[in-house]
């Protein structure tokens, strides 16, 4: 099973560091000279299913905003990163969620990561606000620190689990003939950002 995950986040929130840290753990002593830090493949096991995760880093600068859909069009999951010391970066997350639901549809699994938790004292984004928001859009929320390697594993594992379960359900549905076609690029326009997600998983905010 091949699953595509896009990494979204404003420039400088540290999403590249998250991926980089994740890669570095994965390939500890291996040579990295030709390694692309903005893309990675990872095998991940969820129950009995082995999934191949393709994680795509995206450029977060506002000037590339319009290009977003090219990247997340056929994604199965999205990891949205914000900086807890930068409230602007969280506003950006709301924008992305809205866009993802609109363009990719309800099927995409979303995990929101509040990065730089090591800088808790400079926190600018209210925890309560974030958790409520995450719940309302059917996303899971995690705190991470790329610097201290906190919460990364959990983040990706949770996202992978959700995606695998969703795909399995889809496949079963396909086999049972309940759904006409489970194409992942199915286009469902959902304007309401508040719409919850009925898919399994969820809940586990820290």
């Amino acid at each position: 099973m091949r699953l595509k995950v896009v990494l979204l986040g404003e420039g400088r929130v540290g999403k590249t560091s998250i991926l980089f840290r994740y890669i570095r753990n994965e390939f500890q002593e291996k040579q990295q000279s030709t390694l692309q830090a903005s893309y990675m493949d990872k095998k991940i096991k969820v129950g009995t299913t082995t999934a191949q995760l393709s994680v795509w880093d995206t450029a977060g600068q506002e000037r590339f905003h319009a290009l977003g859909p090219i990247y997340y069009r056929d994604a199965d999951g999205a990891l949205l990163v914000y900086d807890i010391t930068d409230s602007e970066s969280f506003t950006k997350v709301r924008k992305w969620v809205k866009e993802l639901r609109k363009i990719v549809g309800g099927d995409i699994n979303i995990v929101i990561a509040g990065n730089k938790i090591d800088l808790e004292r400079n926190r600018q984004v209210e925890e309560k606000e974030v958790l409520e928001y995450a719940k309302s859009v059917g996303a899971t929320h995690f705190y991470t620190s790329a610097k201290q390697n906190l919460g990364l594993e959990e983040c990706f594992t949770d996202l992978a689990t959700k995606m695998v379960q969703q795909n399995l359900t889809k496949l079963q549905g396909l086999a049972g003939g309940f759904q006409p076609k489970g194409g992942k690029s199915k286009l469902v326009v959902v304007d309401d950002t508040g719409e919850g997600k009925k898919s399994s998983g969820g809940g586990g905010c820290c």
Partner: peptide, 12 residues
Amino acid sequence: GDELPGADDFLP
């Protein structure tokens, strides 16, 4: 060091 460029640098 052994830092690697991310998409923020790679795309531009």
